[in-house]
Simulated scan of single mutants.
Amino acid sequence: MTDVKTSPGFLHLHALNGGGEWLHMCIKHRETSAYLMEVAMLDDLVVDAMIEEDTRSRVRVLDDGIMVLLKAMHVGQDMARPEDMVSIRIWIDKTRVITTREADVDPILALHQRLSAGAGPTTPGEFLADLIEEHLDEVDDHIEELEDAVNRIEGLVGTHQTEAACPNMAQTQSRISGFLRHLGPQKPVLEHLSRCKHSLLSERERTRIDDGLDQLLRYLETLQNLRDRVEILNDQVARIQDRQLTRSSFVFSVVATLFLPLGFIVSAFGVNLMGVPFEGHANGFTILMVICLALVAGMLVLFRWRKWF
Rank of each mutant, 00 (worst) to 15 (best):
D148V: 01
I90R: 00
G19L: 12
E205F: 06
S267M: 15
A170M: 07
T162Q: 08
L128H: 02
E133V: 03
D78Y: 02
G125R: 02
H182R: 10
H192G: 14
R96H: 11
L69W: 07
Q236T: 06
G9L: 02
L180V: 04
C196Y: 10
Q236S: 13
A129M: 09
Q161G: 10
L131K: 04
T246P: 09
T95W: 05
V4I: 08
A110L: 03
I66F: 10
W91Q: 07
E144Y: 01
I132E: 11
W91M: 09
A165Q: 04
D104L: 07
T222Q: 06
G280P: 02
H135Q: 08
Q236A: 14
N283E: 12
H74E: 15
M289Q: 05
Q113T: 01
Y219C: 11
I66P: 11
V296Q: 02
I88R: 01
L70D: 12
R175E: 14
V39C: 09
K5A: 15
H74G: 09
R243A: 00
G280R: 03
L128T: 00
E147N: 07
T207M: 08
H74Q: 15
D211E: 15
L62F: 13
L180A: 05
A40S: 11
T95Y: 06
A15K: 09
L62C: 07
T222L: 05
K5C: 14
L16D: 15
A149Y: 03
G155V: 00
D242V: 00
T122I: 04
L216T: 05
V157K: 00
E21G: 03
G120E: 13
R101L: 13
G212D: 12
L115F: 05
L300N: 06
E126K: 03
V39I: 04
R114M: 11
R60P: 09
A80C: 11
T55A: 15
E221T: 02
R30K: 13
N283W: 12
Q171V: 03
M274I: 10
K197W: 12
N168D: 13
F269G: 07
S202F: 08
Q236G: 08
S7R: 07
M289I: 00
G76Q: 10
V251W: 11
G280Y: 06
L23M: 14
G212E: 13
S248V: 03
L258H: 01
E144N: 06
E53R: 02
A49G: 08
V290L: 13
R239L: 10
P107L: 00
I232E: 13
H160G: 03
A15W: 15
S199Y: 13
S253Y: 04
E83H: 04
I132S: 08
S33W: 13
L16G: 09
L180F: 07
N272P: 02
L13P: 06
I51H: 05
S57H: 03
H112Y: 01
R56P: 06
M41C: 12
L273C: 04
T100D: 14
V266W: 10
P8Y: 03
T207S: 12
Q224K: 03
L245V: 02
M50F: 04
L115W: 02
Q77I: 05
M50H: 01
G65V: 01
L128M: 02
A117R: 04
Q215P: 11
D130C: 08
T162R: 01
F285W: 00
L36V: 05
R243S: 05
Q161C: 13
I291H: 04
S116W: 02
D141W: 04
A72Q: 12
